[in-house]
Computed example of a mutant assay.
Amino acid sequence: MLRRLTLTAIASFAALSAAAPAATAVTPLLPLPPLPVLQGGWAGVPDTETRLTVTVSGSGNPTADGTFELECDPAGGTHPTAQRACDLLAEAARSGDDPFVPTDRNAMCTQQSGGPAAAQVRGTWQGKPVDAQFSQANGCEISRWNNLMPVLPSAR
């Protein structure tokens, strides 16, 4: 019984092996489908796109208040210091820091006020979605704002 199964398998393999070259010789080559695109980048390649909309109000600096577009690689948009802002964001990415993470709710912050300045940053950074709020409400928020300068303007 085992010998019969082995012989059948060998005969089937031989028949398929003989038919394969004939089948490929007759069949014309077809073009390959395009590679799939996932989340703005090629499959398997991380997306490093940075496009942000920065909206600032109450900074005390009339030229800093408003809405600015920031694009990186290459630096551009309507942001007044686009190259410096992109350099800061690139350094944060290299060091593994996320400058858009909100302050921990359990953080101990000094109860000082830096003024009414507020900012919102939306878009993508390193291909990841960003929707972050910034203020000068306490010591932690002031520090967070200052760490993101020049993406955010000086609020004094």
Score class of each variant (00 low, 15 high):
residue 74 P to Q: 02
residue 32 L to T: 14
residue 113 S to V: 01
residue 123 G to W: 00
residue 114 G to Q: 10
residue 125 W to K: 00
residue 86 C to W: 00
residue 19 A to R: 14
residue 117 A to M: 06
residue 113 S to G: 15
residue 120 Q to A: 07
residue 23 A to S: 15
residue 78 T to D: 06
residue 34 P to A: 11
residue 107 A to P: 11
residue 83 Q to R: 02
residue 29 L to A: 15
residue 47 D to V: 14
residue 88 L to K: 02
residue 104 D to G: 06
residue 25 A to H: 14
residue 118 A to D: 01
residue 94 R to M: 13
residue 91 E to S: 05
residue 111 Q to H: 09
residue 123 G to D: 09
residue 65 D to I: 12
residue 118 A to P: 06
residue 15 A to C: 15
residue 34 P to I: 07
residue 48 T to E: 08
residue 119 A to I: 01
residue 33 P to C: 07
residue 111 Q to Y: 11
residue 130 V to S: 04
residue 122 R to T: 03
residue 89 L to W: 02
residue 37 V to C: 09
residue 50 T to Y: 00
residue 77 G to V: 01
residue 77 G to D: 03
residue 33 P to F: 12
residue 108 M to V: 14
residue 96 G to Q: 03
residue 79 H to P: 06
residue 121 V to R: 13
residue 38 L to E: 13
residue 13 F to R: 10
residue 78 T to F: 07
residue 61 N to G: 12
residue 43 A to W: 13
residue 115 G to A: 09
residue 38 L to N: 11
residue 63 T to L: 12
residue 115 G to V: 00
residue 38 L to W: 10
residue 73 D to V: 07
residue 73 D to E: 15
residue 90 A to E: 02
residue 83 Q to G: 03
residue 110 T to V: 07
residue 73 D to P: 09
residue 53 T to Y: 03
residue 130 V to P: 06
residue 114 G to K: 02
residue 35 L to P: 10
residue 55 T to G: 10
residue 83 Q to P: 05
residue 59 S to K: 09
residue 128 K to W: 07
residue 50 T to K: 00
residue 122 R to V: 01
residue 49 E to K: 13
residue 42 W to L: 15
residue 31 P to G: 05
residue 19 A to T: 08
residue 80 P to R: 01
residue 59 S to N: 08
residue 77 G to A: 07
residue 15 A to E: 02
residue 128 K to E: 10
residue 73 D to N: 15
residue 22 A to F: 15
residue 47 D to E: 08
residue 25 A to Q: 12
residue 20 A to E: 09
residue 66 G to E: 00
residue 56 V to R: 03
residue 91 E to Q: 06
residue 79 H to A: 01
residue 120 Q to P: 00
residue 26 V to N: 11
residue 42 W to K: 13
residue 34 P to H: 08
residue 87 D to L: 09
residue 29 L to T: 05
residue 113 S to C: 01
residue 114 G to M: 01
residue 18 A to I: 13
residue 95 S to Q: 08
residue 17 S to I: 11
residue 84 R to P: 06
residue 21 P to H: 08
residue 18 A to W: 09
residue 71 E to P: 09
residue 93 A to Q: 11
residue 108 M to R: 11
residue 91 E to N: 05
residue 115 G to M: 04
residue 25 A to T: 12
residue 22 A to R: 13
residue 33 P to Y: 11
residue 124 T to L: 03
residue 39 Q to A: 15
residue 63 T to M: 15
residue 93 A to C: 02
residue 84 R to Q: 12
residue 94 R to Q: 12
residue 23 A to M: 15
residue 117 A to G: 10
residue 26 V to L: 15
residue 54 V to T: 02
residue 120 Q to E: 14
residue 15 A to R: 10
residue 65 D to T: 09
residue 112 Q to M: 06
residue 41 G to T: 14
residue 111 Q to R: 13
residue 89 L to M: 06
residue 34 P to D: 10
residue 16 L to Q: 11
residue 89 L to H: 02
residue 112 Q to I: 06
residue 28 P to Q: 05
residue 114 G to C: 00
residue 49 E to N: 08
residue 76 G to T: 04
residue 75 A to F: 00
residue 111 Q to G: 12
residue 86 C to I: 03
residue 94 R to I: 13
residue 27 T to L: 12
residue 118 A to T: 14
residue 109 C to R: 02
residue 121 V to S: 07
residue 62 P to G: 14
